[in-house]
Design a protein around this nucleic acid. Structure first.
Lengths: 316, 316
DNA sequence: GCGTTGCGTGAGCATTTGCCCGGCTGCTGA
DNA sequence: TCAGCAGCCGGGCAAATGCTCACGCAACGC
């Protein structure tokens, strides 16, 4: 109890310090005087406010260079939607650069008056987007997961993107209660015969908009790093020409899905190529270029949020 | 041409510097290396990005103390909506503190699926809110002005809140083409007999939501400072018990409108007391407390965005 | 009872940032 | 053509900031 209460008041204090610093433009000394604490404490509070994500910073200016890249990508790959975020410099994390821009696009989708079914995948990029979303009441839309939420170790879910988004929007949400990847094709089939699972799958297939990450299938493949497939399995699909993956469904350089032992066990929904509804891929980074290009070529995705460096590489 | 182009590229550069600094967290030296310019130039660019409003900062945390004040205000004054922003310290501008919170509430209104008519007043607080709005396509709602847009000196409009909001939302908008205050009651009547003016007035009267500032009627009254009424006129209504004003309509301490020579000449729409639709007052500052309290008492407004200090004063 | 551990605190210091100022460049008008 | 002027640039410096380290205190286990 007292633990939770102190926690709340410290966060409050951090928020107040951050507010005075960023919005009010006061110096830390002034804030210290205002709050009646030491300057050092103010420094710590502000840095905590930043770390906890209490302070949200966005850039309200479309740079010419980004706009040009967007237009060129949209033309070249016939995209419905395209956003290019400025890169964060050589050392920066590309996922963080695109998170805010992706959240912006997502929020724009939410402003549509008609109730939508919005499907989401998972991964670091989506997770970043979810964290950047403004909390708002938006309960006319439904959020549905494209992938299973049961991790190999039995833990509920890995990045938990669906829950985070639904939480912020207080929207009805439909997790897919199947393993991300089953031990066998039979197990997968058994799960998918369950009535509630079928309902979620049907919903995901008819989604009015879809937001997914794009995974590379090099040796740094997220599918492998996160423990969903073994190194041997990775090598096997690499040998079959795998270059990328969307919602766990692996495809080759031309964006055609690869059928393999893995795909028969992978839970969740395979996005049909060349859908008309927006399927937005959210991905950036040098290692993902080939995967993104393939997903675009196969029209698995018809929209893209990426960063400058990746956009440039895609066009080269 | 070259002037405009340089302007654009400088802003782009400023935006990029600000992005790397605020979002990327790089030091100015690192940014300088990245952009290939001097550290001093980076400093200038970042400060320009800030000044131009390219960097938008918001606080994503409701402080306990603010929530308590909101709940207490809502209870005491039977409010439909109430938001209390943290104060910006003794020296801070209260209008700036509440701008972001007000914009948040406004944006929340915009997420409603059904097309709305939203009426807006004017003033510094509303202007601040308009500046903080996220640009977004929101053309199902209509924005209508409560007050005239012809200033005494003939200039088109003073704070131009309506245009700024409509611009950001690309929404249909209805300015009221009448003088803020006419020279005579007859002139006012003549304007209000015009068919287009009547249409706008009708729209404003039936607005689904209304956002207004609240002006004090002390010697620092905005109506006087901005040149709409003379010192003599101010003194006259003060003698009649004037304490505040909403959209140019002056009321006494109990929130009852005062009929005077001024009110007969004031263009625009008088908000009917005790309306059911949300009428959100956006105001903060020690000089406004009495005016806000009166507007609440008379149920001219039934919602409030203010800051901590003002909220506390209202409750005392 | 006592040592240990973990967290928060303040002091001091290195780095970073904001700003002023002198100098330079490029434009303008006589 | 050239003086005058305005705006930009970098140097340098003072203020502000971020960070590390040693210390104190309370909780915990032995």
């Amino acid at each position: 109890m007292s633990r939770a209460e102190t926690e709340i008041t410290t966060l409050d204090e951090a928020a107040r310090a951050g507010w005075l610093s960023y919005v009010g433009g006061l110096t830390q000394d002034q804030i210290a005087a205002e709050l009646g604490v030491s300057r050092q404490r103010v420094q710590r509070l502000v840095s905590r406010a930043l770390a906890e994500g209490l302070i949200r910073v966005r850039l309200d200016h479309r740079m010419g260079s980004c706009l040009r890249l967007e237009a060129e990508l949209a033309r070249r790959f016939r995209l419905l939607e395209c956003r290019v975020a400025p890169s964060l410099g050589a050392s920066g994390d590309p996922a963080r650069a695109i998170a805010g821009v992706a959240a912006d696009l997502f929020e724009r989708m939410l402003t549509r008056p008609e109730p939508l079914v919005i499907a989401v995948g998972t991964g670091r990029a989506l997770r970043g987007m979810a964290d950047e979303l403004q909390p708002q009441l938006c309960d006319r839309h439904r959020i549905v997961s494209l992938i299973g939420n049961i991790a190999p170790d039995g833990s509920a879910s890995f990045f938990d993107v669906l829950m985070r988004i639904a939480d912020k929007l207080q929207a009805p949400h439909y997790p897919m209660a199947v393993p991300v990847i089953s031990d066998s094709a039979e197990e997968r089939a058994a799960f998918h015969q369950l009535r509630p699972v079928q309902a979620v799958v049907a919903l995901a297939r008819q989604a009015d908009a879809t937001f997914v990450g794009v995974g590379q299938m090099g040796n740094d493949a997220p599918l492998h790093k996160d423990g969903f497939i073994t190194a041997a399995e990775l090598a096997e699909v690499q040998a079959q020409g795998a270059v990328g993956e969307v919602a766990g469904n692996i495809f080759d350089a031309s964006g055609r899905y690869i059928d393999s032992g893995i795909s028969a066990r992978m839970g969740g929904v395979r996005i049909a190529p060349a859908r008309e509804e927006p399927i937005i891929g959210i991905a950036a980074g040098p290692t993902k270029v080939q995967a993104i290009r393939a997903a675009l070529a196969g029209r698995i995705i018809n929209g893209l949020v990426t960063d400058e460096a990746t956009a440039q590489a895609l066009l080269d």
